[in-house]
């Protein structure tokens, strides 16, 4: 390992790091939005839309992000729908993540016992009030660990972006290995930057999981 090489590579990796982070978090925000809306549609059994959402979730949960990216980035332009690599990355991540988030939110909503609805009704709450003040807060706290796990999964999946020539961490590492053959240094920095990106989220996840277990089992 050559420290001089590492020092000269750091700015390149930092740039890629922020790009990955930016697209990653836009994609995740999109995923949470899509996931929540989809979960609402499924929870309220809205006719028509329900079937469509179910199909979307099935399709995106059962295909790899790499294929989804290729389809959106190379497939759609062939029939005249062209978007930039960055938008494509965020959209694909949002769609993939949305299907995972939808399942997490939905199981959270369904985990709230029916007695909560009955009690709220007995207290004379309106339907909207009942959902917003009683069901939703409980459902979200139940689904938080699953959502953190999804966020980690999605941040990891961003490594696939290099396949559509986004200058992310993976792309930078591959590029530098190809150009200068400093494989060890590039891989070392790659690992370090992914650790910086993911370790805090992972710790937050374990912490929340412990909290959840404590509230459920008390140990």
């Amino acid at each position: 390992m050559d420290l001089e090489v590492i020092r000269s590579y750091i700015p390149l990796f930092a740039k890629a790091f922020f790009l990955t982070l930016r697209i990653g978090w836009i994609g995740i925000a999109l995923a949470i939005l899509i996931g929540m809306l989809s979960a609402f549609v499924l929870y309220f059994r809205i006719p028509m839309l329900s079937g469509f959402i179910k199909f979307y979730i099935e399709l995106f949960r059962n295909t790899p992000l790499l294929i989804q990216l290729f389809f959106i980035y190379f497939g759609l332009p062939a029939i005249g729908l062209s978007i930039s690599a960055e938008v494509c990355g965020a959209v694909a991540l949002g769609l993939l993540g949305g299907s995972y988030m939808a399942e997490s939110f939905r199981s959270g909503l369904e985990a709230v016992p029916y007695i909560q609805t009955e009690s709220a009704m007995a207290l004379g709450m309106s339907k909207g009030r009942l959902f917003i003040s009683v069901i939703l807060p409980q459902a979200i706290s139940i689904s938080v660990p699953a959502i953190v796990a999804n966020i980690i999964f999605l941040l990891k999946e961003t490594s696939v972006f290099s396949a559509i020539s986004l200058m992310d961490l993976m792309f930078t590492a591959k590029d530098l290995i190809g150009l200068y053959y400093d494989t060890t240094e590039s891989l070392f920095l790659l690992v370090i930057f992914y650790v910086i990106m993911l370790l805090p989220v992972s710790f937050a996840g374990s912490f929340l999981e412990k909290k959840m277990r404590y509230s459920m089992f008390g140990d």
């Binding site: 980690i152 993976m170 494989t183 992914y194 993911l198």
Partner: peptide, 18 residues
């Protein structure tokens, strides 16, 4: 948990060889 599978692939495929 925190390493993307792509990174692991690169480490094993390129790193170990090097």
């Amino acid at each position: 948990r925190i390493m993307p599978q792509m990174v692991l692939l690169f480490i094993v495929f390129f790193g170990i060889t090097k």
